[in-house]
């Protein structure tokens, strides 16, 4: 079987310790949490960090899922299974449960983490689209202290984030606003596969009018996993199938998918529109209390 190249290993005993270790070990050190994206890459020797800083011992600090005031807070070390099982997350944002049900598989979800998925910055990452739709904000800590990074500004390219090598993602915050509904729609070739395309939507209604909306897309080359043009077009419009389709079409036009064995460009662009429509439709139905 394939095995990683050698590396040094340190176990962090606190957030401060983790950041100090990252500083000491230099830019070729990586944080390992669940490791379910990183370790396979290391086995294939596509990733060769000099050192790993294991933060799995920081669960008490980093694995909470809770409501803080009018925000939902998800610790970066929360496992996918924790998020899927979280009643509070599902109550406010069913999109989390929609997405987590189709992320990897149940065993991987037991160990893979929310923060790890976002920091891996895979261009087909589901949670990137979910948090982009929700306009979530990551709390990031480095030697200089804590800063906030919008998830829509977190990713700068495939496998690249704005985090400095000695910064650690602590948690993600999503504003809870009344009158909303959310949903996630994904097409995959098979259960557990990366998406061919996927779309997430969150929508707030004033009667039959769209008060606000967030749309996230993954695996289709949407800049920052978001669809701001479609969102702008849909705000203030009636929450109808027609306006959803028009917005979805706009979202699709602003995507830049690449062809691979999951499908050609035209198909992925079609899916971007189709899945955005479906996500909006379902999000709106939930906002109206018509669907769980």
């Amino acid at each position: 079987m394939q095995v990683p190249a050698p590396f040094a290993y340190e176990r962090a005993t606190s957030v401060e310790h983790a950041i100090a270790l990252l500083g000491e070990l230099g830019p070729e050190a990586r944080v390992v949490a669940g490791g379910h994206s990183l370790i396979p890459m290391m086995k294939l020797r596509l990733a060769r960090p000099d050192a790993l800083v294991d933060i799995n011992g920081l669960g008490a600090e980093l694995a909470q899922i809770r409501v803080d005031g009018d925000e939902l807070v998800i610790g970066s070390l929360a496992r996918h299974a924790d998020l899927l099982g979280s009643a509070v997350a599902g109550e406010h944002f069913p999109i989390f449960h929609d997405a987590e049900k189709v992320i990897a598989d149940p065993v991987v979800r037991n160990f893979g983490t929310v923060g790890g998925s976002l920091c891996q910055a895979d261009p087909a990452e589901d949670l990137a689209a979910v948090f982009a739709a929700l306009d979530g904000v990551a709390t990031v800590r480095g030697p200089a202290g804590v800063r906030q990074v919008r998830v829509r500004e977190l990713h700068v390219g495939p496998y690249e984030t704005v985090l400095a090598p000695d910064e650690l993602m602590l948690e993600l915050r999503v504003a809870i606003r009344p009158g909303g509904g959310s949903a996630y729609e994904k097409v995959e070739r098979r259960v557990g596969d990366y998406p061919v395309a996927a779309a997430g939507a969150v929508i707030w209604l004033d009667g039959d009018t769209v008060r606000d909306v967030g749309i996230g897309l993954t695996a289709v080359g949407a800049a920052h996993f978001a669809a701001p043009e479609a969102e702008a077009a849909l705000r203030g419009q009636p929450a109808t199938e027609e306006s959803f389709r028009a917005a979805a079409q706009l979202a699709a036009e602003h995507c830049n998918p690449s062809a691979d064995q999951r499908g050609p460009v035209d198909y992925k662009r079609h899916l971007a529109a189709e899945l955005t429509t479906r996500a909006l439709r379902r999000a709106a139905a939930r906002a109206r209390g018509q669907e769980a």
């Binding site: 061919v196 062809a259 691979d260 999951r262 499908g263 050609p264 198909y267």
Partner: peptide, 20 residues
């Protein structure tokens, strides 16, 4: 695959043994 079925439905079949 979903892409192949959609391609067939839309008159754009995929050669499945080669890179798409």
């Amino acid at each position: 695959t979903p892409a192949a079925v959609w391609g067939a439905m839309n008159g754009r079949p995929i050669r499945t043994d080669l890179a798409i």
